[in-house]
Each structure stands twice: as structure tokens, then as C-alpha cells.
Design a protein around this nucleic acid. Structure first.
Lengths: 293, 293
DNA sequence: CGAATTATCTGACTAAAGTCAGGTAATGGA
DNA sequence: TCCATTACCTGACTTTAGTCAGATAATTCG
């Protein structure tokens, strides 16, 4: 990355934190300490477990407790017992708290609207588009990618999400042929499993299964809907190719269904070439291979 | 503007202030209270007047004084008398202060680099481009546009910048034919003058001079280089069209030089049609008109 | 069951941030 | 010249933010 890019990022950081950060805070504060305001906002109309609040806002448990006491005295929140674990507790907004929350919501909306109102419609659209792009790529930049065991709860959640999506998208649905757990165990025995996480939560995966001395098969490429469009699948695939090279494989193959157009486009962009059928997978319509340098 | 746009802006605000704002602060702090760190950073290698610091950082004068005392005790800054007003004071960084400032600079660079390093080169480029777009449009959104007298110092600065640019761009240079001040007085007598400012500083202008009962001429459209590409000229032109309609004009005309290609493109986009020469301006090569609805 | 762990709360702190009411010296206008 | 204003400083506060060491009750694991 070059100096110009770094300079642009810094300029962006400066402008945005000034223009957005400070102002948003002032809209959010509403004459209340910012800590209390943020907490009230984070609790939200559905209420929340204290545990989660501590994690999301990175608060010391003593501090959180005190903030809650303050909001409680103002009649804005009420504490409740948590469902399954009697140690944990929940907070919910009282009617007064809900009203305050709504005021925050509309303040934040007003702020966004003010920002947009200063622009002509065409520029407005450009701004919104560019913001979406920045947001998606910033999210992508905090994604971590690592090889993991495919039989952990998180990995199985990924595989299940993948199968569920295939079931939705294939005409006639999709049946993996065996329980997810069994397939995961199989992968653990003879494959490699790469997982992408954002803030700890799994958002994507891909598997590699050696077929013979020289050939590996790419399987189970899945990206959560919230993480698409930021080049994550490419990052996963490239990382897996590195692995294949490290395993001395010289050829990767994969199959795919005709409804997965964006996947096919990705494979082509990555240098995969269409080949003839190499397995009897009834769901597969297209077959690809790539020679590894 | 629609709800989706507002929602996108809010999401952007949330993600960016979390990802960028908080982290940048931690890079900036370097084990020093954030207030002191910000002040040190803001003083900069050239030093600064206390007055300006108070304004830019919105600090109480007592608080600023105290922060400076703290930095002084650490040997990072030195106070000096201000040039013209013996009440005012300046701060400058000592060698130790300069070293700390440099450390902040490099920390901020590291942060930007870390952000980019997590992305593949193609995404990196997309991110930088989108950041530039957001930055430019956010800047544009704090631009204020208003009719002002054309014979103030700021307005004359705009007109001078305009003439200087024409002089640079025209083959053979440009001679306005009279001193800027005289032309400004003329405009004040029979025209209307619209000015764009960003944080108080003039960054663009346009003038309207009625030619007869029904026709007005658009002149002196200028946008500072730092403000181009965000649709400001369009905003100025549209605002001036509104003014023309309010004056019951039904037709606007303007002339332009062949080297100003982007201006011609703008006029066409705004619905101006090319017509024959309507004056004897020796610098004009193309003539346009627009019928007002 | 008993020991270790976990979730929350309370009390006792400290540091940082920010406010307010004077006070002094320089400046500018009547 | 005199008086209001301005720029900065100092002292005396208050509020926020955040930390840390127990205490208590529920849960989990061996």
C-alpha cells in the first residue's frame, strides 16, 4: 500500500470523526452523561442481558451496575431476572425509557437527514453509495481468517447455514445426505477447514478435501449475507489455494449448481476453467478446475 | 431523501465512529490524557495562537490554560508572546514536543496502514476511493451558499481567484479589462452575487446580471480546486436559476471559452443549449441559453 | 456433594474533563 | 484620558469516567 493511500485514509479519519463523531455524540447526549445515553440506546426496546451489554460497550461490571442504577432512579429502566440462568439479569426500558429511546432514534435520524439535506439528490445518492462501500470494507477489514476444526459448534453452524441456503436456492431443495455433524466429522478426518470470523462470530467458511496425490476438491464455500460484496470469498479461496500449494497439490477441482451464478463468476475470475463432470453429485451442474503454479 | 438513505447514513455513522473514532483515539493517547494529546497534536510543528486553539478544540479558556501548563511542565511546549497583540499568546513545541508530535503522526499512519493491510489490494483501492468520495461529499455538505455583496474582501478574493485561473488556462492569458474592485462595484450596482463558503472560507461564487426585461447573464462561475467534484457548481447554478425565476426572468444566457471543457459539460447537463454569439467578448468561444420554466 | 467458576452488585477509590467566578494586563473607542 | 472589552490566568469547585477489591448467589464440573 502506498503513501497516498495512507494519506487518504488519515484525511478520511480526521474529517469523519470531526463531522460525524462529535456531532452524533451531541445528538445522542440530550443533556444526559454520554455513558448513560449510550447505555440506554444500546438496551433498546427489546431489553438486553447485562452480559451482552458489558461485552458490546466494553464496560467494567461495576461501572455498568452503577450506570443502570442511575437510569433506574430516573425511572427509565427496570431490572428483570434472566430466563435460564438465575445469576444473569436483564434490563428493559420502562415506558419513560422507551420514550427517551425514541427521542434518541429520531435525533440520530434528524442528524442523518440534515447531512443529506445539504446535498443535491445526485450527490446524495453518491454519498450513500460510497458510505455503504466504506462500511462494508471496514467491516471486511476486521474479519479474521483461520484454519479451524470443522466439528466445533461454530463450524457446524456455518455448514448448517450453507446447507440451508442451498436448500432455499436449489429448485427442489437440497439434502446433504447425512446429518451435518457426521459430515463435519468426515471433514475433520480427511480435510481442511478455513473459517472467517467477524468479532468472533463465524461469517464464512470453505473446505478442502484431497482427492488423490495431486488433486484437491474445494467444497462448502459459504459467506454470510451480511459479509458479501467485500471480497471475502476471494480471500478465503486464495488462502485455501496457498494451503493446497503447501500440501503439494497441483490441481484444484470443484463443482457447483447452476443457480449459484455469483459463485461461478467468482471461480472464473480466480482462474478456474470449466471441465467435464468428475463426480456423480446429483446437485452439480458445472465443474471447474485450476492448475496451481 | 428516503428512509433507506437515512438508514445507510446511520449505519455508516455507527460503524465508522466505532471502528475509526475509538481506535484512532487510542493511537493518539500514548499514555497521556486524551485532552493533552489532542492539544499537542493541534498545536503542531508551526505552533499556534491560543485564540485559535480555543476555537478549534472548543475549550474553556481556563481549561486550555491548565492543559498548557501541564504540557509545559512536561517540557513539551513553550509559551511565547504573540506578534501584534500583547494580550494574545502563542505556544510552540519544544524539541521534545516535536518528537512527541512526530510519534503521534507515525501512530496515526500505522493505524491507517493496519486498516489497509487487512484487505486485498483490489479492495484496498476500492476502500480508498470510497473514502475519498465520502470525504469530499461530507465536506460539501457543510458548504453554505448565500447571496452576498460582491464588493467585500471575501468576494473580491473569489473574483481574483477566478481571473487568475482564467489567466492560467487561456492561451495568451486573460485580462479582465479593469481592476477587480471596479468590476465588483459594477456587479454590486446591477447584479446578484452568490457565494459558497466552507467553515467561513469562500470557496466558490457565481454572478447574475440582468441584460433586459426577460434575460439574465450568468458570469464569474468559479469553484476552488479543493471543492470540485462534489456538485457544488451545480448547486450554485440551480440556486441562481431560482433567483432568476424570482426576478421573473425567462431566459438565461452565458458565454465561455473553449478551454473550459468541464464548464461546457456542466451547462449542457443543466439544460443549456448552444446559441450564436450574443456579445463581443473576445475571450468567449461558445454561447449558451436556457429557457426558464 | 464440594470446589471452582461465573454474573452481578457495592463501596472506596482516582483521574480526567469541564465549569465558574474573579483577577491582571493590554487594547480600542468615545 | 477613561472605561468597556478582550485575552489569558488562577483557584475552587462539580461531574463523568473508570478501576479495583471484596461480597453474594447461582452454576458447573469432577
Amino acid at each position: 500500500m502506498d503513501a497516498q493511500q495512507i494519506a487518504q485514509v488519515r484525511r478520511f479519519n480526521r474529517v469523519v470523526t470531526q463531522r460525524v463523531g462529535a456531532l452524533e455524540d451531541s445528538y445522542l447526549a440530550r443533556g444526559r452523561p454520554l455513558g448513560q445515553a449510550r447505555l440506554l440506546f444500546e438496551i433498546g426496546p427489546e431489553g438486553a442481558e447485562l452480559r451482552g451489554l458489558r461485552d458490546r460497550l466494553r464496560l467494567d461490571s461495576g461501572y455498568l451496575s452503577r450506570l443502570l442504577r442511575a437510569l433506574e432512579e430516573q425511572g427509565l429502566v427496570a431490572m428483570e431476572a434472566s430466563g435460564d440462568d438465575a445469576r444473569g439479569r436483564r434490563v428493559a426500558l420502562t415506558p419513560a425509557g422507551l420514550a427517551e429511546h425514541a427521542a434518541y432514534e429520531s435525533g440520530s435520524q434528524d442528524f442523518a437527514a440534515t447531512l443529506l439535506a445539504a446535498l443535491a439528490p445526485a450527490e446524495r445518492e453518491r454519498l450513500v453509495k460510497a458510505m455503504a462501500e466504506v462500511e462494508a470494507l471496514l467491516e471486511a477489514s476486521v474479519v479474521t481468517i483461520a484454519f479451524e476444526r470443522p466439528d466445533t459448534a461454530d463450524a457446524i453452524a456455518c455448514l448448517s447455514a450453507y446447507f440451508a441456503e442451498l436448500d432455499r436456492r436449489f429448485q427442489g431443495g437440497f439434502d446433504p445426505g447425512a446429518p451435518v455433524e457426521r459430515l463435519a466429522e468426515g471433514l475433520a478426518a480427511d480435510g481442511h477447514f478455513l473459517m472467517a470470523r467477524r468479532e468472533g462470530r463465524p461469517i464464512g467458511c470453505v473446505a478442502l478435501v484431497p482427492l488423490d496425490e495431486a488433486t484437491g476438491e474445494i467444497k462448502r464455500l459459504w459467506i454470510d449475507a451480511s459479509a458479501r460484496g467485500a471480497g471475502l470469498s476471494r480471500r478465503l479461496m486464495e488462502r485455501m489455494e496457498d494451503k493446497a500449494r503447501a500440501l503439494s497439490l497441483t490441481r484444484l477441482v470443484l463443482d457447483t449448481n447452476r443457480t449459484l451464478a455469483e459463485a461461478q463468476a467468482l471461480y472464473r475470475r480466480l482462474g478456474y476453467q470449466q471441465i467435464g463432470r468428475y463426480n456423480d453429485n446429483p446437485y452439480a451442474d458445472h465443474f471447474f478446475e485450476k492448475r496451481l503454479a
